[in-house]
Amino acid sequence: MRPVSDPERAREELKAAIARLADGDRSALEFIYSATSAKLFGICLRILGSRDEAEDALQDVYISLWRSAGRYDPARASPISWLATFARNRAIDRLRSGGGGGRVQREAAPIEEAAEISDSAPLADAMLETTQRDAKIHHCLGELEDRTQDAIRTAFFEGTTYAELAEAKDVPLGTMKSWVRRGLEKLKRCLDI
């Protein structure tokens, strides 16, 4: 089954696929991969800067999803936001553990933990985003102080770490973390309204 082009319907089908995956339906992983791999690969590539590393991080994302699909709560996040967080976290973990920029050495996961997935040309990630949701997020971000807005955009859309942000803005790491934490709390309140 291929992902659909209507954003609202695509979101609902993605939620349903994650629920099926949580119940052990291996074919649901193929649908999720087809619907999300282009966007998640883009996140990994932007953070890691290496196709090989991004491909490895993307594999880690889907293995993690296989193990934790049952923890997805649609009331807390859209499916693509939840998966994008997986991708961002896996990529940053790989970046941090990479040492001097060389290839990361890691133990391979058993093949039984991955579903057989064919790489059929993934659809554009735009099918999963709605204009209304984007407008609301940008509106809420616009309500934040400039420094907080900039820090959140840079951290979450560009994959910059808090330490890198603190260094770039010449502030202590704790200060940067506080700005982002308080900004995310305000953002959450705005999005919940």
Rank of each mutant, 00 (worst) to 15 (best):
P3I: 05
P3T: 06
R9H: 13
A10M: 06
L14W: 03
A16Q: 08
A17Y: 02
L21G: 02
A22I: 04
R26T: 11
I32M: 10
S37P: 07
K39D: 09
K39T: 13
L40M: 10
C44F: 01
R46Q: 11
L48P: 01
L48H: 02
A54Q: 02
A54E: 01
E55I: 08
A57H: 00
D60F: 05
S68M: 07
R71W: 09
Y72W: 05
P74H: 07
R76M: 12
A77Y: 09
S78T: 13
S81H: 06
A84N: 00
T85F: 03
R88G: 00
R94V: 03
G98S: 15
G99V: 14
G101I: 08
Q105A: 10
R106V: 03
A108L: 11
P110G: 14
P110A: 14
E112S: 14
E112G: 07
E113R: 10
A115Y: 06
E116P: 04
E116M: 12
I117F: 10
S118P: 07
S120V: 14
A121N: 09
L123Y: 05
D125W: 13
R133E: 14
R133G: 06
R133V: 15
D134E: 13
D134G: 13
H139T: 14
C140K: 07
L141P: 00
G142I: 08
G142Q: 06
E143K: 12
Q149S: 12
A151L: 01
R153I: 12
A155F: 00
F156R: 06
E158C: 08
E158S: 12
T160F: 04
T161N: 04
Y162F: 13
A166M: 07
K169V: 09
V171H: 07
P172L: 10
K177G: 02
W179L: 12
V180D: 03
V180L: 09
V180R: 02
G183I: 02
K186Y: 05
R189S: 11
C190Y: 07
L191T: 07
D192W: 11
